[in-house]
């Protein structure tokens, strides 16, 4: 463990001296241990990858603030937590905005489906092409009749995350059906 910690610190010192190979190696190792940290806290793989990219860019911007005499990981995790909090803050405020759109969507969806003859069964092929989590959520909500809260309990997610995932799925489906 100490060896690895020393290794990170040594790689970072080399990176600060302009060693590109050491820097690439360090960023690779960093993304390796940050990925599970983010995966535990976020619902979707694409979110993890997006945020990981942001964190790597932040590490790059702040690399002059690392002091080679200190441990590397606490420095990296401080940046990662900062970016994660930023991301979640933006995500939840965005979600509040979406919550209005979603309620509007929920009001108009049954009417629209009846008028055009669209049912879950008729679009189930398209639903299956969605990412697994989104497809499962739509199936549970629209085929089996579960509420968002019940789906959240079943899938071990929070209710808001279910609504956001469903909303994203609706957007994808709407685009496909409009073609």
């Amino acid at each position: 463990m100490t060896d690895q910690t020393d290794n990170f610190a040594a790689l970072m010192r080399q990176s600060q001296n302009g060693d590109q190979r050491a820097y690439a190696g360090l960023l690779r190792e960093t993304s390796r241990f940050l990925r599970p940290f983010l995966a535990k806290r976020l619902s979707f793989t694409n979110e993890v990858e997006d945020l990981l990219q942001e964190i790597l860019i932040s590490i790059h911007k702040a690399r002059h603030t690392y002091d080679g005499k200190r441990a590397y990981k606490p420095w990296v995790y401080a940046i990662a937590k900062f970016r994660l909090q930023d991301y979640l803050r933006a995500h939840y405020s965005d979600q509040l905005h979406h919550a209005v759109e979603l309620s509007e969507l929920e009001e108009s969806l049954p009417e629209h489906v009846t008028e055009t003859g669209i049912s879950y069964e008729s679009i189930s092929v398209e639903v299956q092409k969605l990412p697994e989590k989104q497809a499962t959520i739509l199936q549970l909500m629209h085929q089996e009749g579960y509420t968002a809260k019940e789906v959240a309990e079943k899938m071990g997610m929070n209710e808001s995350a279910v609504k956001v995932a469903a909303h994203r799925a609706y957007k994808v489906l709407r685009k496909k059906l409009e073609r």
Partner: peptide, 11 residues
Amino acid sequence: LAQDTTAVKPA
């Protein structure tokens, strides 16, 4: 990022 990196003066 690695290609972009140059020597930086630590704070």
